[in-house]
Simulated assay, not measured.
Amino acid sequence: MKVEVDLNTCQDHGQCVYAAPDMFALDDEGRLSLRSRTTDVYEAEVDEGSAGELYEAAEVCPLQAITVHE
């Protein structure tokens, strides 16, 4: 399973942090901590045990910046 976050679309609303706190976090400036990456799209392999939280994070993202691939 793979999660993808389009960092150009993301506007740091933080709903993903509440839905999947083990995967997403906001930094001290209130920005998605993945913003420290130098690419525009963040991709990560995720174990199946996190599927429910990841799908919830993708669903609650107001800008639909999160995509989960099986």
Rank of each mutant, 00 (worst) to 15 (best):
T9A: 15
R37F: 03
D12R: 01
R37M: 13
L26P: 08
V60Q: 07
T9E: 14
L32T: 01
D22T: 05
L34T: 10
D22N: 08
T39D: 09
V60R: 04
E53H: 10
Q15C: 08
V41K: 13
Y42T: 03
V17A: 11
V41C: 09
L7P: 03
E70K: 05
E70V: 03
A51T: 08
R35N: 10
E45C: 08
M23C: 12
K2R: 09
E48S: 13
A51V: 10
Q11L: 02
M23S: 12
K2M: 08
L34I: 14
A57T: 03
D28P: 07
L34F: 14
R31F: 11
A44I: 02
A58D: 13
H69S: 01
E4V: 13
T38C: 02
V46E: 11
P21G: 11
D40T: 09
V41Q: 08
H69M: 01
Q15L: 02
Y18S: 14
L32K: 01
K2I: 06
P62Y: 04
E43S: 15
N8R: 15
A25I: 03
L34R: 09
E59Y: 14
Q15A: 05
A57D: 06
E4T: 14
T38K: 11
I66A: 12
H13D: 05
L26R: 11
Y55S: 00
V46Y: 00
S33L: 14
G14C: 02
E48Y: 00
C16D: 03
D22C: 10
V41M: 04
T67K: 15
A65C: 10
G52V: 03
H69A: 03
F24P: 12
H13I: 05
A57G: 12
A20F: 09
T9W: 00
E29P: 03
H69E: 05
L26K: 09
G30L: 14
P62L: 08
S33R: 07
S33D: 15
Y42S: 14
D22Y: 04
S36V: 15
D47G: 06
E43K: 06
S50G: 05
S33H: 12
T39E: 11
L54G: 04
P62D: 11
C10F: 04
V5I: 14
A65S: 09
V3W: 13
G52S: 14
E48V: 08
L63S: 04
G49W: 00
Q64P: 01
Y18Q: 04
D47S: 07
Q11I: 01
T9G: 06
E45R: 14
T67G: 07
C10E: 02
N8I: 05
Y42N: 00
D28C: 00
D40A: 03
C10R: 00
A44N: 10
V60D: 07
M1Y: 01
Y55T: 08
E48F: 03
